[in-house]
């Protein structure tokens, strides 16, 4: 579904991505972990058609980026650590607006089903500004899946969520996975990454340095492995 080959991205003299290779199969849930500045967000923004690559190939559902971004956009949904919603509009108005942008026909129905699915029907007439962080993130999921995208992209969606809200978001994500959406999640939370997804890729300094399948490894083993892969040759420089 998502095919990335030799992807590079430079900003002026700084190189953020140095030849990323990643293949995400249809219906697969892949998590990308890495420390701050590893290039995770840049990678996701390129896949989300928000950023143009400097080199390499990216295809989504067979469409090459950035030349066929217009065709790809219909099939992707994005959840980022920003809400991507209008704080001054109500929950229903926000969803209605995005439903119109996607040219969805039976909007009223689609919007109320979406609100019900994320448990926000009671708050549909309230301004998003008055929502808690967890509610905003649920509404964000509803927004990102309104047009039934094949691919769901998530950039640190757990930022700022408390235990309960995170658990609820976990359940929502797994449900999206069950109904067959391809999911690419980006997080710095190793445990969550390995427990949620089918496969975890470690991104370090602009390159994917290791990939593991969840069934092959336990969460603690994965954390040890990550430390080795990322800091292995620099241990002496790091405190602790």
């Amino acid at each position: 579904m998502i095919q990335i080959k030799g992807l590079t991205k430079q900003y002026g003299l700084t190189t953020v991505l140095r030849g990323v290779n990643l293949h995400v199969r249809e219906g697969e849930f892949v998590t990308l972990v890495g420390s701050n500045g590893a290039g995770k967000s840049t990678l996701l923004r390129i896949v989300a058609t928000l950023l143009k690559p400097s080199g390499g190939e990216v295809t989504i559902g067979g469409w090459p980026l950035p030349s066929h971004a217009h065709n790809v956009r219909r099939h992707i949904g994005l959840v980022s650590h920003h809400a991507l919603l209008y704080g001054d509009m109500t929950a229903a108005e926000n969803l209605m607006f995005f439903a119109r942008l996607y040219g969805i026909d039976n909007r009223e129905e689609v919007v109320s089903t979406a609100l019900k699915r994320v448990g926000l029907t009671a708050r549909r007439r309230d301004a998003v500004r008055t929502f808690s962080r967890g509610m905003v993130q649920r509404l964000t999921i509803a927004r990102a899946t309104l047009h039934e995208p094949d691919v769901l992209l998530l950039d640190e969606p757990f930022t700022g969520l408390d235990q309960d809200a995170s658990a609820l978001l976990n359940r929502l994500l797994l449900r999206e996975h069950e109904i067959g959406r391809t999911i690419l999640l980006i997080t710095h939370d190793l445990i969550r990454g390995i427990s949620l997804s089918d496969r975890v890729a470690i991104l370090n300094r602009g390159k994917i340095v290791h990939t593991v399948t969840r069934d092959d490894i336990s969460a603690t083993e994965f954390v040890t492995l990550y430390q080795q892969v990322v800091h292995g040759d620099h241990v002496a420089e790091l405190p602790g």
Binding site: T15, N204, R205, V209, H210, L225, G232
Partner: peptide, 15 residues
Amino acid sequence: SLSVADAEEMRPATT
């Protein structure tokens, strides 16, 4: 060693 034009010299993962 990674910055600037040294991308090619990047060391492979040692795991």
